[in-house]
């Protein structure tokens, strides 16, 4: 039965759908709306799903729904997609290591990333997609995915360090 098949295929990935929506939208309320709407679209287009990775298929719908809803098509100027001057090879400052282990601090830092960086972090670190799969999901070349990941991680380190310093100054 079509409905059963839909549920079996889609429901196991509801956490992934919500997590992506939550990170793209930035709050629970909009994330719920996005998931509801994406599920509706997924149901509508389910006839067009011909096997393959259901999670990637659903997340592509969630991503489109989110960007449409937020009217926040990638617009920021992220600068050239190269890796120069990104690699910080200095030993990790103690605050970064300590706070990088703290989920609330990490969530606050990820939330501050530009959305293009945030989504590759979600796809790579939380969903374990390969570079190739991510490239298809965000519709960008693999090289761009790699450089966005590199820059996202460099920015995360900087944000965590800045947040830690700010907290120390205040206390």
């Amino acid at each position: 039965m079509e409905t059963d098949l839909f549920e079996q295929t889609i429901l196991p990935h509801l956490d992934a759908a919500y997590n992506l929506a939550r990170w793209l939208a930035g709050n629970e309320h909009d994330a719920r709306d996005i998931v509801q709407e994406a599920a509706l679209r997924a149901f509508k287009f389910f006839g067009g799903f011909r096997g393959g990775d259901a999670r990637a298929w659903l997340l592509a719908i969630v991503r489109n729904t989110a960007f449409t809803k937020m009217r926040a098509q990638p617009a920021q100027d992220l600068g050239p997609d190269d890796l120069d001057k990104i690699e910080d090879t200095a030993p990790q400052p103690a605050q970064v290591l300590e706070r990088a282990g703290n989920i609330e601090a990490m969530r606050a830092a990820i939330a501050k990333l530009p959305v293009e960086f945030r989504e590759v972090i979600v796809f790579r670190e939380m969903e374990n997609f390969s570079y190739k799969e991510i490239a298809e999901l965000v519709n960008a070349p693999i090289g761009t995915v790699m450089s966005r990941l590199a820059r996202a991680r460099a920015q995360l380190r900087e944000i965590i360090l800045a947040d830690a310093n700010l907290r120390e100054t205040r206390s």
């Binding site: 429901l11 759908a17 997590n19 970064v96 601090a105 990490m106």
Partner: peptide, 22 residues
Amino acid sequence: ALKPAIRGSYYAAPDDLRASVL
């Protein structure tokens, strides 16, 4: 060093959302 906490930052779907999507 960043990986474990990024993974842990996952937001699981609220249970009532699961029910309402169904």
